[in-house]
Nucleic acid binder design. Structure first.
Lengths: 140, 140
DNA sequence: CCTGCATTCTTGAACGAGTCAAGTAAACAG
DNA sequence: CTGTTTACTTGACTCGTTCAAGAATGCAGG
């Protein structure tokens, strides 16, 4: 069990949050709370905040914050993958590391910084939203 | 005057905000407000929020929101440059487009998305914070 | 140089994601 | 089983940002 491996106590809320994130990537705290409550109706919102923070700190979960969105979480960690975000419907999909791999993740001039991660977000329109007159779902 | 070019009325608050951002890149709304008030003590915080939004919409200013930070603004626009952020002191510096240019800005699999922008944030430690025992300024 | 209207600014309240704090409950080492 | 440490519950609160109504200002046209 990954919780034990991270020296975290195994509790119902933690197991439930992990299960939710494995099923539903890029969920917001609120969405996680809602889904966790299907199984554990009594969990508090504070518990979910605490759990998400603990899991993030332990590296079992990754927190992302695309512009204009509240924090979202995903259970896919350790592979430094990136995200593609639709400007229209806010859909998020994972993309593997950009082509050419490593060279892309080095800034041209690092100004003396020791860089340990390159975070990439691709912005655009998803297939549904870029289709001329389909039943797109506009955000807002 | 860039304001006229963007079909925006020329007002004191707008001129002041633009001037501040040209001097101080990556300033928060609050920092902008403080600096603007040196010249125009009466401006309201709402005016600064409105101005920043108008300038951002007009493309005269760019809004960035690094993880864990409030919104920041910069007057350098149109060149899709990226940012290097220090995990320790939160310092932000600009970096030109990553090496190799264009190829880096194409996701390996676009899942049908029409991508129009690749936003890159490099995380690490600035020279001061990565120096062994200098007088680093920790954030927090 | 005026006039009038649309836009912008002032004032003050409200919103919402996230955090703090104190006390109760539960995990797990021994 | 017991005790201690770590989680969770409850409820208040912070802070960046937005909303709303009315006053002020920029500027096109006369």
């Amino acid at each position: 069990m990954s919780l034990r491996g991270a020296a975290l106590r195994v509790t119902r809320p933690r197991l439930a949050v992990l299960a939710v994130l494995r099923e539903h990537a890029h969920a917001t705290t609120d969405e996680v709370l809602g889904r966790v409550r299907v199984q554990l109706p009594e969990v508090s919102h504070q518990a979910v905040y605490d759990v998400l923070r603990a899991l993030t700190t332990a590296g079992l979960v990754r927190r992302i914050e695309p512009q204009g969105s509240v924090a979202r979480y995903e259970a896919r960690v350790g592979d430094n993958h990136h995200h593609l975000v639709c400007r229209s419907c806010a859909r998020i999909v994972d993309v593997d590391c950009v082509v050419g791999a490593a060279p892309c993740l080095t800034p041209s001039a690092s100004h003396g910084f020791t860089v340990d991660e390159a975070e990439v977000v691709f912005w655009g329109l998803c297939p549904q939203c870029s289709a001329p007159s389909s039943d797109r779902k506009e955000v807002l």
